[in-house]
Design a protein around this nucleic acid. Structure first.
Length: 419
DNA sequence: TCTGGGGTCCTAGGACCC
DNA sequence: TCTGGGGTCCTAGGACCC
């Protein structure tokens, strides 16, 4: 059996942990730059605020209904996630952290366990120790565990937040209840096509012919179908090491000058380098992209990306910044109002087993230098040591008007309790 | 005026090899 | 008029996830 544990309205719940006065009130969390709604409490969902809603379009509604609005506080959410995952890791030796607020547990050898009470205990302990409410779905396959989780979340009182699919009757009942567009792995495109041929529920989907599913949705779709039929096809995935690393941002205002973009690109490249070093990888290729604001039909549009093959694998901030700046030079065009840019590094090799090249002009001195920088930044706070090409005067700022304190990661922000 | 940021996997098709 | 048969590797683009 697999368990899928999912935090309810995760970001909104994190904000509430330290603001219990917000319980029962509508809460939304916005994306970077306070752009879109990326998390909603149940009360906010009930007001009809959709996922991804542009904040400026909903300002009036927020005010009318006293919706509590927060800027994304990823320092807080990341730390809360670690706490939740650490607790859950005690409930099975095999765990896959699927996203910031979700994990799978493999319950192999749990035949003599009462899974219902096992799930209820997880739920009790996580809520008690972190303040985050969770839902638990348990089933013979991952895709069915996802379905079970949905039921647990939808009917918290009836299920006590834990639902188990452990019989054929329950499986069929659950699949007939679930709309095909809500199935994990079936997105907008596929559900449109499926709906068109009369496939409305997850159950309808499992009744389709294998060949047909494979033709329409490739091998991924077929695996999903089998998993939903109760034939375990998807197993826990262990990959911890990322295959791509990106740092990209939208700007609060438009940038028109090369120098402004060059500073951003330098910062993004050195952030990618830092993330590479964290997972002990070097990259062999790098992409830089810039584009104007696609929503502004009144402005001339320009969008380009460029991929640079590096002559040697590296994770040095200095090297990557140099390559990224060269790349930017080749795609930058004067006369446009740029709104977004980013750096993506790809094609990794392991940092400690690099292939030596005959004409490699890699500077070995960067290795201890980067180690020292990382160490100092860890000790003295993020970004204390930066490259001169980065924003040393802290000119650049993200729009974050409703940022909550970093309650759990910054001593200055720790809460005070008056007894 | 204001519209996020990060990932994964798969497939088709082109370029190339012998 | 007729023009083989088998591979590999790479990339762009599509679909999906949270």
């Amino acid at each position: 059996m697999f368990a899928l544990i999912d935090c309810n309205n995760f970001y909104a719940s994190c904000e509430r942990v330290f603001r219990p006065d917000l319980n029962g009130k509508p809460v939304v969390v916005l994306s970077n730059n306070d752009g879109c709604v990326i998390a909603r409490s149940n009360e906010a969902k009930a007001l009809g605020i959709p996922m991804g809603a542009p904040a400026f379009e909903y300002e009036k509604l927020f005010r009318q209904h006293g919706v509590q609005v927060f800027s994304a506080n990823f320092a807080l959410y990341g730390d809360m996630s670690n706490r939740v995952m650490t607790i859950l890791s005690d409930y099975s030796p095999e765990m896959e952290i699927y996203s910031i607020d979700e994990c799978f547990l493999k319950l192999k050898g749990f035949d003599f366990f009462n899974l219902q009470s096992h799930g209820e205990e997880m739920r009790y302990k996580v809520t008690k120790w972190t303040g985050i409410p969770i839902s638990v779905g348990i089933a013979p396959t991952k895709a069915l565990a996802k379905v079970a989780n949905r039921i647990a979340k939808k009917y918290p009182t009836e299920t006590k937040g834990v639902y188990i699919i452990d019989s054929e009757e329950k499986r069929i009942k659950a699949l007939k209840w679930l709309k095909v567009e809500d199935v994990w792995g079936i997105g907008r495109q596929h559900s449109k096509r499926l709906n068109a041929i009369g496939v409305k529920t997850a159950f309808d989907f499992t009744q389709l012919d294998d060949e047909f599913v494979k033709k329409q949705m490739a091998i991924v779709g077929l695996r999903l179908k089998h998993d939903l039929q109760g034939i375990p096809t998807l197993d826990l995935e262990e990959t911890q090491i990322k295959k791509n690393i990106a740092t990209t941002r939208s700007f609060e205002t438009n940038y028109t000058e090369y120098e402004q973009l060059a500073e951003r690109i330098s910062t993004f490249a050195s952030s990618c380098a830092e993330k590479l070093r964290k997972q002990n990888s070097c990259c062999n290729s790098l992409m830089v992209f810039i584009h104007t604001n696609g929503h502004r039909k009144d402005l001339p549009q320009y969008s380009r990306n460029i991929v640079i093959k590096l002559s040697f694998p590296t994770n040095s901030s200095i090297e990557l910044t140099k390559f990224a700046t060269q790349a930017l030079k080749r795609i930058f065009k004067q006369g446009y109002a740029y709104k977004k840019a980013g750096v993506i590094v790809q094609d990794f090799s392991q940092a400690d087993s690099l292939q030596q090249k005959l004409f490699e002009n890699r500077d070995e001195r960067h290795i201890p230098l980067m180690q020292s920088i990382d160490k100092m930044n860890f000790l003295f706070g993020q970004q204390k040591i930066r490259l001169a090409s980065q924003d040393t005067k802290r000119v650049w700022k993200m729009k974050q008007q409703k940022l909550s304190p970093r309650y759990t990661t910054n001593l200055n922000d720790i809460i005070t309790i008056n007894l």
